[in-house]
Design a binder for these strands. Sequence first.
RNA 1: GGGCGGAUAGCUCAGUUGGGAGAGCAUCGGCCUUACAAGCCGGAGGUCACAGGUUCAAACCCUGUUCCGCCUACCA
Length: 933
Amino acid sequence: MSESELSKTYHPSGVEKRLYQYWEGRGFFAPVMEKGGSSYCIMIPPPNVTGSLHMGHAFQDTIMDALIRYHRMRGDRTLWQTGTDHAGIATQMVVERQLEAEGKSRHDLGREAFERRVWQWKESSGGTIVQQLRRMGASCDWDRERFTMDRELSHAVTEVFVRLYDEGLIYRGKRLVNWDPVLRTAVSDLEVLSEKEEGQLWHVRYPLADGSGYLVVATTRPETLLGDTAVAVHPEDDRHISLIGAKVILPLTGREIPVIGDAYVDPEFGSGCVKITPAHDFNDYAVGERHGLPVINIFSPDASINENAPEVYRGLDRFAARKKVIEDLEALGLLDKVEPHELMVPRGDRTRAIIEPLLTDQWFVKAGPLAEKAMQAVTEGRIRFVPAHWEKTYFEWMRNIQDWCISRQIWWGHRIPAWYGPDGRIFVCNCEETVYELAAEHYGAPVALERDSDVLDTWFSSALWPFSTLGWPDATLELETFYPTNVLVTGFDIIFFWVARMIMMGIEFTGEVPFRDVYITGLIRDAEGNKMSKSKGNILDPLDLIDGIELEALVAKRTRDMMQPHLAQRIEKATRKEFPQGIPAYGADALRFTMASLATQGRDIKFDLGRIEGYRNFCNKLWNASRFVLMNTQGETNGPHPGEEFMSVADRWILAKLKRVKVDVTRALDEYRFNDYAHHIYQFLWGVFCDWYLEMVKPVLYGEDVAVGSKVAARATMLGVLEESLRLLHPLMPFITEELWLRVAPLAGRSGESIMLAAWPVEDPLAAHEELVEKEMDWVISLVTTVRTLRAELDLPPGKPLRMMVMGGDEAVGRLERQGRIISVLARIESWSRVGEAPGDDHAVGVLEDLRLFIPLSGLLDVEAEVLRLRKGLEKLEKELGTVEKKLTNPSFIERAKPEVVEKERAKEAELKEKQFGLKEALRRLEKMGKAS
RNA sequence: GGGCGGAUAGCUCAGUUGGGAGAGCAUCGGCCUUACAAGCCGGAGGUCACAGGUUCAAACCCUGUUCCGCCUACCA
């Protein structure tokens, strides 16, 4: 490849798709099963098949891919198991909406045809998110992609259901459950979101049956009055205690219901009397059980009033019924008063419909025994949360765990493997043929069975994901190799939905935890800290950050398909203001690097476009540094290495720094400190390699009097360091590192088809002589910086060569002598000389440790300004010296602090004093001079 | 009500076992220096929310307070 192929700036669009196709086509993502040694596996949290990639995915996928690529490079048998989730309710809703557009309902099709239709939809439109994952550079093993409705996974689901049923851990029962009247299905309590809303509190008079007056009860849901079966008061409430046992007439129905005493009532609230509706409130249900109250269900599955209510209300929707009940009460003079009242309203997370507690037959998983073992796994350290504090959340929920309602009254999902005999007897079996045999055996003759029409909660199959995808219940090689998996990367919002349930199921069915570590990520928010949501119009699409998007397209995208069209205008305005130029294409690597650099443990993330721009620039920096290296090595002799004696101190120094960054980066990855990983490699490549080393190497490369061996050594070092750095960066920036590595590696004497298959750099500790080299060059850098600062402060043109005089100890002067060439180039020192005493005319003074620098200004020195500058420096220094001396004069510090700390302070004091002396000396002379003139 | 988290530079945030307050962005000054203006060089900027305590030493440990988030349960 010729250097002309590297453009002056990095253009990710020309690189990413090509390289991804290369990797995928060559099968680089699949684990090498024959290989021995350790294995490494991550299960992707299967995204909804209906979904598209959002920032949360981009974040988590970056982290997973970085870990996967890192371990693959370390030589582990590495599997990133991918796939999607059938998302029962969401998917059914999507397809029903399509049918609706054709003027049909799912009932017109019938169950089987509807299921076929969903499969069709899945084949044609379900692949969006997995294609988007590829754009992120995700190195999942696509040949092993799974879908929770696949035959093998469905088999695992049935198997688990049957075993749990046989163990008595699954049961069917009539219970009050959360009912979504729009979907007409039960949902679990986790799928209900309660939010504060403005409502009203109606105070209703309930006449006493003996005609002696009335009680007032307050309610936020007057329509449920029709199902009341008691009025409760607190048993120690003096105002009402005499009424316990009395009867009241339930308005509008004429039913007589008792007044009961129950400590559930808060005497302080309202009138101290509560209406009890066991069929439509979870608390009331409990009260009803305690007092043996009848349960009157007044709602149909669509939440309209049923035949248990007086005829005038029947068929009314619950909101219409409320209106009529209020009107009727008012007409009867039974409405005492109405107050505004803030209350928590439960809504379905999919439909936003108000959830209704409803008494129905459902299937439940008995959670207690499973939770017990799942908690143990964490207390015993077999599972570790990162950051650790999330285990508190986990325990909190596990301790209060409720039985899990797993049946859903929808069509899309795993059908419950239960059949009912003619007498209602339940047969649960993993095989449809066998179940008829079982029934025949039971009844003594073949009978017709009816299969339960419900399907299972999607999370039921997700809970099995870590082992069902590996072939369970068969004892497969994959299961043996990769289970338990190493780490689960996910958001805290599904710790309950998914993480806890995977742990319960994993332990129950494999005897092993499903994963060792759980890395919990924060939530990605917008720049203002708001949650990203369609209705707020503040969503950023990861693909738009990669590819860029024009303003008009962005506006159109954000305002399309709005649930509340009136918000569109505001969103458009905000979008135009925030992105007046649209969004530029930053590339996948910049996005990934940004995600990692923001991934600090245990905090939400405000996504800042400034960051991604900065990391796009970093890509460009790396690109150009590589361009520089290639320009200076292509067609040149870069090896064999001529031997250590030809290596410059700069060469040795950069190798020492590389050793350090290898250790830092590896540790950061091992500890899930992705921000540290990003920071260290960024700092090394930009702040050390580019800013210093490449500048130091230029005089060697370009110098005419430099030995050939030195030039070869410099080129070899430059190539070697770049090549290893690319490998260190690869897990985070797969594309640009591959593109560069394929050109750099051969020059560095490495071969290989891909950087993703290259070995992770070996870490080894710094030797003593390397630390000395490091120290010397660090000192050189300080010196160069001191001169540059002097220049800037004295307004000396950056390009103007300077003469310099120095006064100081032998070590400093020795360093100066050894590194004179580098210093003269980097600091633009034309010549320097050592002097025994400070020069007598006007010189600017700089101090570095015990070394004093004098820059002659040939009559240009502004004495007053110089005095001011030095005083300022002195002031700052003496402040620092003060705190150090305070410590050292404190006897208890000397006595009680660790010796190395005391030593450090002493050294610091000495260093500061040297510098103080230098500055004072300079000031004294200047002030004398000032007076003289 | 219960639980969890947060408050550090103008902004967004790091800060590992207690031991010299950091980064990026923004800002100011100077540079088109032969890899890179998506760049280079330099500077300024902090009462680590507040009040106590422990310690030779506290951004960090303990107690309390204020404010801000999130989760969870709710008073009908």
